[in-house]
Design a protein around this nucleic acid. Structure first.
Lengths: 400, 400
DNA sequence: TCCATATAGTTCAGAACGAATACTAATTCA
DNA sequence: TGAATTAGTATTCGTTCTGAACTATATGGA
């Protein structure tokens, strides 16, 4: 939900809260800067920065890392950097696996464990029990590695309400209106920033923004090819959640008004052409007891072998995605796309088809079509990264 | 352009600036409230509100309007309301007319004058000279009516850069890269808030938000049927300008990937089906020396007469708009649409076609399709309203 | 070696501001 | 007439940033 202009009165203390976050914002994941440099960049006075940094050192978010040489002459500054011994936990429940990881403030994924398992149709309670076992192991590993957790996040492939911690619906898991508030509580017990629930495509889009292709772009449409076609819109280096809180639902943009009925009740949606089932079906790769992963592998083999039917199916998917991408380009004035999830496997065929169709439908409009290189850890990284950002945006919560 | 997180240091004075605007924000166009009521609504203390109101009275934005009865007992409060003797000027250059008006802080359009003239292909300088003559008359009328101007705005049917005051391109005027900084300066000379340039569809969308259908909606896609098909996205009661600053360009969303080439170089765009020329052409209403307004009148006569070709052309436009509306619904999670401009003339045929197609392509997704009732003054009202909002958001600029 | 110069960082007085509290003002009701 | 109730003001206090003066630590040349 886009935040309504809450009539919150400005208090004197707000200024300090804002400036504490401002100082942290001057330090990227890898940056080292002295108090004087921070003062110059932020526009704050040296006196204010000194005072703010003292507080931030107390929170443990910041640490001093020896001296820095600025100009040739004069007293050297004391280097300041984000403390790599603080971090957040990210978790992901997906159709074929569970994954949990710990990301530190410097953006390093310090621990990452994945458990393959088919969670489709399992009772949420059973899945969550497995997840918590995995999370406990990961927390222990992080602790052994010297990382103290500040918070966490959980990503699921479905429509979620972050404020209440409920999964409204996750069709591919078979979940419907599942409350996860307790599960979130148990994920990172006793940390100052409670774990939050998020959509898997949104988390992956954010991981891309903070630690992947998106850093150089700032604004882009992230397309996630999973069982469905998910999407996340990043506008001006921020996740755009739209009017109702669930923007970027690319899978059900209409690309063919006269096309096939979709499971959503609509007609001619992207998913009816570019969803996994649609592609595999059109390519003639039948279910036959095989897993989705196995069938996708068969598809890539067919593509490599030059199988005409497979190539046409993937090309058709690329064309459908192009129509949706143009709609995004026009409606929210985007000019970049990042493709992730299983689309990466199809890139050799999908990329050219997408490029070509974009050039026909809206020449010159899309400047950059890129494929993600974050791999399978995107959602976990994004979920943990969001918790890290929450901490860096609200350092005052860590002060007495 | 979505504002990058400018590293602006928070200063002590920011708190007061914010709270001054907060107090004004508690007073809608028609609202009257006492200091005590404002304190209760805003969360500020009575003492702070008293102090803030004293400053605001000094700016002239606020005025005392007699006593108010709160509860049954106790001292009555002093009513506070926005001062209707302050306002802003809105101007519009369009293909068939020039218009200038003055809107007061209470949202009343106190003066509004329109001059019919075909501005297509005229030199920008000539058009602007006419506009300034009109603006001078309107300023005099406002002054005679006791309204003091705080600022202004100018809306044009094209892509603009508000920060530099340039029109990048306005195809239907035949303008290309026209600098309007001087013209804006002359529009409201000597006012504290400089006039700003805006897109006509965006201004109309904002007028809808502040003074029309949008008040009840908060988030919607505004569709403006002019020579082209313009659009404005309002998300969470704010104009959404997207990644590049020009969101809502509905006219070139692809609705038929195999469709006709568009003047933009693309294919199957909304405008190739729902633009004025496309509808008139498909309806068989030829140019024949007649003005666009005349041809549109002929179209509505044909519709009223039950002419099949005309009805099919408008229905086809409704279907095309539906595809674009679904794209917006999915991508930015909208559920409401407001139709303005010349679409209002076609509402009897266009509305049902739109509803029906929406129900086929995305059943239940769009909750509200409404037609604007602001008429021809939408863009002028929006341009002036934006200036009013700027003043109400930055009252400190009016203090010594 | 020693001092001028340059840069980093701290200390302290001052101003701006909202919060809390106690006060005055104006009204109703018994 | 006075108690109760509500509106609004005055005063004191704590928080925070700013700016200027100050201390700390380096380089480089006499």
């Amino acid at each position: 939900m886009t935040s309504e202009a809450t009539p919150a009165p400005g208090r004197v203390g707000d200024v300090r809260r804002r400036n504490l976050a401002l100082v942290l914002g001057c330090l990227g994941p890898d940056a080292v800067a002295s108090r004087a440099e921070i003062a110059a960049v932020s526009g704050l006075t040296k006196a204010s920065v000194s005072s703010l940094v003292a507080d931030l050192l107390e929170t443990g978010l910041l640490e001093e890392v020896g001296v820095t040489r600025g100009g040739e002459r004069g007293r050297p500054g004391v280097g300041l950097a984000l403390n790599p011994r603080r971090g957040a936990l990210g978790a992901e429940v997906n159709v074929d696996y569970l994954a949990v990881g710990v990301l530190d403030l410097r953006g390093q994924l310090r621990v990452h464990e994945t458990v393959e398992a088919s969670n489709q149709g399992r009772a949420p309670g059973d899945v969550l029990a497995d997840l918590h076992g995995l999370a406990a192991r990961v927390r222990d590993a992080a602790s052994a590695d010297g990382v103290e957790l500040l918070g966490g996040g959980l990503a699921v492939p479905g429509i979620v309400d972050a404020t209440s911690g409920r999964v409204a619906t996750a069709p591919n898991l078979g979940w419907d209106d599942v409350p996860l508030a307790d599960a979130l509580e148990d994920l990172v017990p006793g940390t100052p920033f409670a774990a939050e629930l998020s959509n898997e495509a949104d988390s992956a889009a954010l991981a891309e923004l903070w630690y992947g292709r998106g850093r150089a772009l700032g604004s882009y449409l992230y397309l996630s090819g999973e069982v469905g076609v998910g999407g996340g819109l990043v506008i001006g280096s921020q996740l755009f959640t739209g009017a109702g809180g669930h923007a970027g639902e690319v899978g059900h943009v209409v690309v063919d008004p006269g096309g096939r009925r979709c499971s959503c009740g609509g007609r001619g949606c992207v998913e009816t052409v570019a969803g996994q089932e649609a592609i595999l079906g059109a390519a003639g790769i039948t279910g036959g007891g095989s897993t989705t992963t196995g069938r996708l592998a068969a598809l890539t083999r067919s593509l490599d072998a030059g199988d005409d039917r497979a190539i046409r199916a993937v090309k058709r998917a690329g064309e459908a995605l192009a129509v949706a991408v143009v709609a995004a380009a026009r409606l929210v004035d985007l000019s970049a796309v990042v493709l992730g999830g299983h689309f990466g496997l199809l890139r050799d065929v999908l990329g050219p088809a997408l490029d070509e169709t974009l050039d026909d439908l809206a020449p010159g409009r899309i400047a950059a079509v890129t494929f993600s290189d974050l791999g399978a850890s995107a959602a976990v990284t994004g979920a943990a990264g969001a918790a890290v950002r929450r901490a860096l945006a609200a350092p005052h919560a860590l002060l007495g």
